[in-house]
Simulated assay, not measured.
Amino acid sequence: MKPYQGAGSAAMPLWDFQGSTMVTSQYVRLTPDERSREGSIWNRVPCFLKDWELHVHFKIHGAGKKNLHGDGLALWYTQERLVPGPVFGSRDNFHGLAIFLDTYPNDEATERVFPYISAMVNNGSLTYDHSKDGRWTELAGCTAEIRNQNHDTFLAVRYSRGRLTVMTDVEDKNEWKNCIDIAGVQLPTGYFFGASAGTGDLSDNHDIISMKLFQLMVEHPLEDDTVDWTKIEPSVSLLKSPKDNVDDPTGNFRSGPLTGWKVFLLLLCALLGIIVCAVVGAVVFQKRQERNKRFY
């Protein structure tokens, strides 16, 4: 947080950075509003807290209008640090947690409204698909107006007793708004916090103004004392990913929240089913009445 102990490309106490990252008196700029740049900043001290909350004061802004800007910013809690790569300036196939603040829709067929915030937990086996904006590996997400705001913008990431919560304060109301809430998340201790950003053919300024970590005082069951939290594998105990209903490459149909037109179709089908059942029932009843009359 300000005042930063460093300037330009000089090292900062407890923090390392790489790529296009520059330290000024007011912010740490991960990328300037220029094409094909990437930068990151990482804390040197691993986090051994079981329950924590991270507050990030950031600013994404640039000259581009409408969809002429990109690509976005990522917040990390991972085993790896200072490794450049294609995922918003950092490596793919990571171990840990990533929160993506994506400002550009690469998938032209998407129904989502950008900028879009999403969460991903990876044990090193998953690849982030930029062409689909990470849709196949996303756990949950929300739309948030985080770009070119004239007021301060904040993001909070809370992890406590296996529950991951992401909140935003981007409307100048000085209050947190829920974005993501997922239970069953397993994250080990001993990982590192960082932030990265990347630009491609389109660009933006991606600034980190402060990153503050708080310890949450939470009671755990006694059996948790016997667990080696540094050996836990990052995972999420979800049967299905809570995303929009889309066909995935394997041919399966993903479950998720129903959009308005899908609810309408379901209600229409249910109404048609009721009408068909009523007609069939009336015909059967009439034939039985006629048969009873002939019998008597």
Rank of each mutant, 00 (worst) to 15 (best):
L213H: 01
G190Y: 01
F154I: 00
A183Q: 08
N174W: 10
P234G: 03
K212E: 06
K231F: 01
T153D: 02
F192I: 01
H151V: 09
N148M: 08
R147I: 13
M167N: 11
L155I: 03
A195L: 00
N174A: 14
G141R: 01
V170Q: 11
A119H: 06
I209R: 09
K240V: 08
S125R: 05
T226P: 07
D207V: 04
F253E: 13
P249A: 06
D172W: 10
I208C: 03
N123C: 08
V157W: 00
T165C: 10
N252E: 09
P221H: 09
H151Y: 09
D172S: 11
T189G: 12
T143K: 06
L155C: 00
K212I: 04
S131T: 08
W176N: 13
I208H: 00
W136Q: 02
G184T: 00
H151F: 08
D181Y: 01
F214W: 06
N205F: 13
L238I: 07
G200F: 13
E171K: 15
T250S: 15
S237E: 05
R254T: 15
I232A: 05
C142A: 04
T230R: 01
P188A: 12
A140M: 08
V166F: 10
N122Q: 03
V121P: 02
R254K: 14
Y128A: 02
D224Q: 12
K177Q: 15
R147G: 05
N148P: 07
H206W: 09
Y128P: 01
S160N: 02
N245D: 12
A156T: 04
H220T: 04
K173G: 14
V185I: 04
E145D: 11
N252M: 13
D172Q: 11
L164P: 06
I208L: 04
S131K: 13
G251R: 08
T168N: 10
D225W: 12
I209W: 01
H220W: 10
L222R: 11
V246A: 11
G141H: 07
